[in-house]
Design a protein around this nucleic acid. Structure first.
Length: 423
RNA sequence: GGAGAGGUGGCAGAGUGGUCGAAUGCGCGCGCUUGGAAAGCGCGUGUAGCCGAAAGGUUACCGGGGGUUCGAAUCCCCCCCUCUCCGCCA
């Protein structure tokens, strides 16, 4: 959510932001609701003020006296009027709140123009993704794949997109998680193991509700939501709190399984491990002072990149253009790993600066030493990293002539052996 | 799951229908005092919205929501959370 004051005082700035994101929002309608709200608010406050004055006067009067009785009659009318006007005010307020939620975050000045994913800027390129790999095939075509990654039984037991990981498959998942968490800890992120169900208030604060309700698994009868990413419980950790300025920046990382219904996303990219309903991911979260958030975004991206480099995986970094940026992000980098068998890039991390957009919605503040007042923090997050696609890339890039998969050097201490076998 | 107790400002804790945004204590800040400190004394010390150039004014907030009333921290209803006891259980 944006600061309502910004919309009032600099509507052109907001209009430009909406245009850069290629979204369609009727800002004038929002401003009109805002004007109505403010005039209704003044009306109600004037009435309330009169009521309070009368209350004070009445307190000094003898209970049954004629003056008292007269006041009661007089104030009864005022009371009714307040109820009526207050109901209107509440209605306008709700309209305004909903309208405000339709306004996206402002893109940062360094975000490139553009409408489609094709217009994202290739910010960096690492590793030999063009290299010929004679054995490379899409990972689901590797002989023996379904022994280690059993989609058929997963579909029987749960549903499509809930695979079993068996033997070396499960071992590789575990090693990757362990590797990610160790590396992230070394980089200064404090490890957290959060709840993997959240309540509606938390899902609302991070923006899953109300818009993306259909993308989450919801429990009955408690109405808890299975987390689509650890970002949700982690960001909500400090919801409605004022943290010490001296505590900033706060770095946290968390492993959780992530649950996504992926309603409506069918196509060629859903095969194998490319897109599943449940997957493991380590998420990186930062709460920082507003003056440092872009510096922190660069460091966050580098932290995620380092993981891919240590795994010897070719990857590229995309700087997202305005049109592909996302509603809440001010700036975003995507990390995509090269999958040699599919001959395509797979997104494994998305590193974003939300500035105060999430913090305002979640009311996460720090007390500024300078002003003595609470101010909103800036929040950032990114994956470090998502397991199944990294795993898919390792399978495809490291497949050898004998049908085994070479385990990257950095992962061997966690995996316990140099090769993964499909036998 | 059952029974009971409770949720008030940074903390502790008073307040059971009116002048209460809320006593008092602790903490914190400033000043006096002191060689310096402690103690003591004095003053101050929440968050948010709206109006205002500012000074300031005004409204809301006593776990959350609704209700009764001219008027609610206080009475009623629903929900959430914490604690104690019982039951069940990894």
């Amino acid at each position: 959510m944006l600061d309502p004051k910004l919309i009032r005082e600099s509507p052109d700035l907001v209009r430009a932001a909406i245009a850069k994101k290629h979204l369609d929002v009727d800002l004038d309608a929002v401003l009109a609701i805002d004007a109505t709200w403010r005039s209704q608010l003044r009306e109600v406050e004037t009435l309330r003020s009169a009521q309070k004055a009368a209350n004070t006067a009445m307190a000094a009067l003898p209970k049954g006296s004629p003056e008292f009785v007269a006041k009661v009659a007089e104030m009864k009318a005022v009371s009714n009027q307040i109820k009526e006007r207050d109901a209107q005010l509440k209605e306008t307020e709700e309209k305004f709140r909903v309208a405000m939620l339709s306004i996206p975050n402002l893109p940062h000045a360094t975000v490139p123009d553009g409408r489609t994913p094709e217009e994202n800027v290739v910010f960096a390129l690492h590793g030999a993704h063009g290299e010929a790999r004679p054995h490379a095939v899409p990972h689901w075509e590797i002989p023996g794949f379904e022994r280690l990654f059993d989609f058929a039984r997963g579909a029987k037991v749960t549903g499509a997109g809930f695979p079993f990981f068996v033997g070396d498959g499960a071992r590789l998942v575990r090693s990757l998680l362990q590797f990610f968490l160790e590396e992230d800890s070394k980089a200064g992120y404090v490890e957290v193991s959060p709840p993997i169900f959240v309540n509606a208030a938390s899902a609302t604060a991070t923006g899953q509700l109300p818009d993306k309700e259909g993308q989450m698994y919801e429990t009955t009868p408690d109405r808890l939501f299975a987390v689509p990413t650890a970002e949700v419980p982690l960001t909500n950790f400090f919801r409605d709190e004022i943290v010490d300025e001296s505590a900033l920046p706060i770095y946290r990382c968390a492993y959780t399984p992530c649950f996504r219904r992926e309603a409506g996303s069918y196509g060629k990219d859903v095969r194998g491990l490319n897109r599943v309903h449940q997957f493991d991911k380590v998420e990186l979260l930062k709460w920082v002072h507003p003056s440092t958030s872009y510096e922190e975004l660069d460091k966050l991206r580098e932290d995620a990149e380092r993981l891919l480099r240590k795994l010897e995986l070719p990857y590229r970094v995309l700087l997202m253009c305005g049109g592909d940026l996302g509603f809440a992000q001010a700036k975003k980098y995507d990390l995509e790993v090269w999958a040699a068998g599919q001959k395509r890039w797979l997104e494994v991390s998305s590193c974003s600066n939300f500035e105060a957009f999430q913090a305002r919605r979640a009311q996460i503040r720090f007390r500024s030493r300078e002003s003595g007042k609470p101010e909103l923090v800036h929040t950032l997050n990114g994956s470090g990293l998502a397991v199944p696609r990294v795993l898919a890339a390792i399978l495809e890039n490291n497949l050898e002539a004998d049908g085994r998969v070479r385990i990257p050097e950095a992962l061997v201490p966690y995996f316990g052996k140099s090769h993964l076998s499909f036998q």
